[in-house]
């Protein structure tokens, strides 16, 4: 409904100018009326909203003003790109941060810990897009290893071949690196402090007093306790990364949701924007749902009856 109040007349947008110029005013009026009728623009905003919800439930998000495709087709491939990239980066982030965070908690105050802290501090202070720009300067200009912008070579190899995957990976490397970097800093600090808290718990002292091996104490007792806050943050991270990757997608002209969103905003492509919001809501919903499920798996105290 917010979108309905945006400047710009949807009818004008729907009819390209060149089409309008070829028609007499009378024909134009008829045509506009027809569009108003088929799109239901003459109804009350609430009624329109109900129609939209109803058709959305049937999987029909309307038509993109930009490409005249159905919104689902319009959004499909960028969405796949974004999801691929973000899932990749999620895995990388956790593969890096969990060991580093835990280790740094164990070595508190030592060189490793201090390096990790200072490093993550610097990481926290650089916005993702700026890191992306720095990466471009470093790895695309000074050492031209990776391409600067874009999704794939101008003449990509045949789809599905090894060369095609290589090409895709080469173009994905820098944006992926930036997204991973964006996640690293905050995550390391969080895991470190969660682990420190866990190590200070009474049960750890008991475990140590029992004479359990240090490894068992750390990985079985302390880490399991640290996991609960970590998972909470993970869910937030999962939601946030989709929003946060937008800026990086734009920096690298990566054809993802960010670009689609930006185009849709600039072209006032309402149905695409609505679909995007549903997408982000779904992401948030999935994240929170997964959180609850994992909670139950990790913490035997929590029960949802």
């Amino acid at each position: 409904m917010l979108f309905r109040t945006m400047p710009g007349d949807p009818i004008e947008l729907y009819l390209p100018l060149e089409m309008q110029s070829g028609l007499s005013p009378e024909q134009l009026r008829l045509m506009k009326n027809e569009i108003i009728e088929t799109m239901g623009l003459d109804r009350n905003h609430f009624v329109q909203y109900f129609y939209w919800v109803a058709s959305m439930a049937r999987g029909d998000f309307g038509i993109s003003m930009e490409t005249r495709q159905s919104v689902l087709d319009h959004v499909r491939s960028p969405m796949a790109n974004t999801i691929t990239m973000n899932v990749f980066s999620m895995f990388l982030v956790f593969a890096i941060t969990i060991p580093v965070g835990v280790y740094s908690a164990l070595r508190r105050g030592r060189l490793f810990d201090n390096t990790a802290l200072v490093g993550s501090m610097i990481g926290l202070s650089i916005p993702g897009f700026l890191f992306g720009l720095i990466m471009i300067v470093l790895f695309a200009i000074i050492f031209p290893v990776f391409p600067m912008f874009g999704m794939a070579s101008i003449m990509p190899p045949d789809e599905g071949t090894l060369a095609w995957y290589q090409d895709r990976l080469r173009y994905m490397a820098l944006p992926l690196l930036s997204i991973v970097f964006m996640g690293l800093a905050g995550m390391i600090r969080f895991i470190r402090s969660a682990m420190i808290d866990a190590l200070n718990m009474d049960c750890i002292r008991t475990a140590r007093a029992k004479g359990l091996a240090e490894k068992t104490v750390i990985y079985v007792h302390a880490f399991r306790n640290a996991l609960i806050p970590i998972i909470t943050v993970m869910a937030g991270f999962f939601i946030g990364i989709f929003g946060g990757s937008m800026a990086i997608e734009i920096t690298f002209s990566w054809q993802g949701m960010g670009q689609i969103m930006l185009n849709a905003l600039n072209l006032r492509d309402i149905s695409v924007l609505m679909a995007m919001n549903v997408f982000y809501a779904l992401i948030a919903f999935t994240g929170l749902l997964a959180l609850d499920i994992v909670y139950v798996m990790v913490d035997p105290r929590i029960r949802f009856d």
Binding site: L2, M6, F242, G243, G244, M276
Partner: peptide
């Protein structure tokens, strides 16, 4: 649970 950037973009726009 609202992703920040998209909403901020829409509101700003």
């Amino acid at each position: 649970s609202i992703p920040f950037l998209p909403i901020a973009l829409i509101l700003q726009f």
